[in-house]
Amino acid sequence: MSTITRREAVALGAGLAAVLAHPAIAQAPTELKLLAPAAPGGGWDQTARTMQSVLTGERLVRSAQVTNVAGAGGTIGIAQFVNSSRGDPGALMISGFVMVGAILMNKAPVTLDAVTPVARLTGEWQALVVSAASPIKSVADLAAAVKADVSRVSWGGGSAGGVDHITAAMFAGLAGADGGKVNYIAHSGGGEAMAAILSNRVTVGVGGVSEFEQHVKSRRLRWLGITAPEGTAGLPGPTLTAGGLKLELQNWRGVFGGPGLSDAQKAGLGEVVEKMAKSKAWADQLAAKGWQDTYLAADAFAAFLKEENARVEGVLRNLGLVRA
């Protein structure tokens, strides 16, 4: 019975807040709709379903429902979200780095400018690795090889224009070569790319840190560097910066609210998400899934996005994947 009383207390509190409302006071939603702009099973879907279980398990909301709208790197999902969630204070969409690139490459009519940043939640650092048998021993070796002849260095990683590809192009650019000429071999899904990297078929492999950890431990692969800032705690290998090439990039995921929210509604969503992100249940889930907590609240997240978008657009433009 106590749970009901507590729920009633929350509702009462919310009601009071609404009565006393002046715009700065948050209006926290009690029912959430989470849109995962991808098929069930992927990273965005898993984020949505993890949020669902933590939000309801911690009784931060009464209900949370997940909807999947798959397609075209999330650009179909965001278009639908903008249409269906205008001014809806209980609607959230999962998004991430991949969508920034997909929007640019697909010339999507609806961009992240149309939605309301609520919070960045998780992220994963990128890593460069080589096969144990590779003659390349250090970041400097790789940079020199890239600078000598960019087309002779083949990169194995995920889909064209995705975070791996962007990492490769940024590296080539920082090494003094034309990032647009990087010989990037795109693979669908991690498995195929990993086989190419393990068998030393490509010069260098690029992907999320967790994908490679086991193989480095079993001495099949060697770290060249990780795209985290120097001094980041808990990294399994050295940073690229420590190797002499300052490249920082993370494959982040976050949540957005619908267009046209009032300040109070925005604050309300932010409050619920923040409570979730600070809960122990959330931390446990992240640990189980190997995700890094990279929480950023709405304003900081918006500023981060702006910077990220400009950076990604520059790289993709140079790759010829975005045209004016």
């Binding site: 099973g41 899904g189 991690g190 498995g191 195929e192 990993m194 086989a195 086991q214 193989h215 189980a288």
Partner: peptide, 24 residues
């Protein structure tokens, strides 16, 4: 090798990771 080569295998990998088991 911890390499998922099909959609099902990728999901299974996620399943393993739930128990802090890293195939490989």
């Amino acid at each position: 090798l911890g390499i998922p080569t099909s959609a099902t295998a990728a999901i299974m990998l996620a399943g393993f990771q739930q128990y802090n088991l890293q195939p490989g």
